[in-house]
Amino acid sequence: MKRWIPVVLVYIALIAWLLFSVFPFSTTLLIALKPKNAFMKFPPDYFSMKLTFENFKIVLSDKNWIKYYTDTIIIATLSAALSVLVGSLAAYSFARYEFRSKEFLMVFILALQMIPAASVIIPIYSMFATMNLLDTFLILILVDSVSSIPLIIWLMRGYFSTIPKELEEAAFIDGCSGMKAFWAVTFPLAAPGIAASAIYAFVRAFNDYIMARTLAGDRVVTYTVGLTMFTNQYEGVDLTLVSAAAFTALIPILIMFAIFHKHFIIGLTGGALKD
């Protein structure tokens, strides 16, 4: 009798948090599936079973929304590529080489990560304003990359140091140059870490709102900023339409995570959670 009690308790806890996790998203989906007039009365109509795909049709045929979306994908992809490349180079150096002021540089990079976004966003704005770079892809790519680089360095350094130096040296002896040995041996071995870093950087850039809202939002519009424009474009609050838009934006991330979340978890936890 005693043995099933903990089992039930554990499952109750897991399922409770599962429902909690999903609750806001399912509410959004419910609203998105409602006809427009469901929220033009008091109290709002949540409970009738009249559902429609009309809102999704409107949103998915909205040219602006599609443009916001592609803008976001471009920014997120390039920024992930940049931060993974730059981050793993630095991490490799920290993991493999001994040099003067290495300790200092590592602390310095970690300390940079502590700088709050709120502290630098105003200067970043005015700095890039004088360079005429506001509202470009480049600025968002740069800023988004920088926000993930410190963590990537930290993560990848751990990865590279678990890969035995001897492997590389063997390749080196076989006639590879230093860089070649890195690409041929170390890089593939560090693949899970790289995958995790890439996903991390992608998601961060994909979801960024404050930088995109402040530094761009005119020629370059990310979907997060676009979502807030949805509310305005139709003046008044059209819950159903905004919800539909929000949900369409969530789906790609959902799919990506359904496929990659194992790699992500394994990469982020250094392989501790393989099951």
Binding site: M40, F42, E235, G236, V237
Partner: peptide, 12 residues
């Protein structure tokens, strides 16, 4: 302000 205005129109 739109939230208040709409609430009044809705019958709040």
């Amino acid at each position: 302000g739109e939230v208040y205005d709409q609430a009044f129109l809705n019958g709040k």
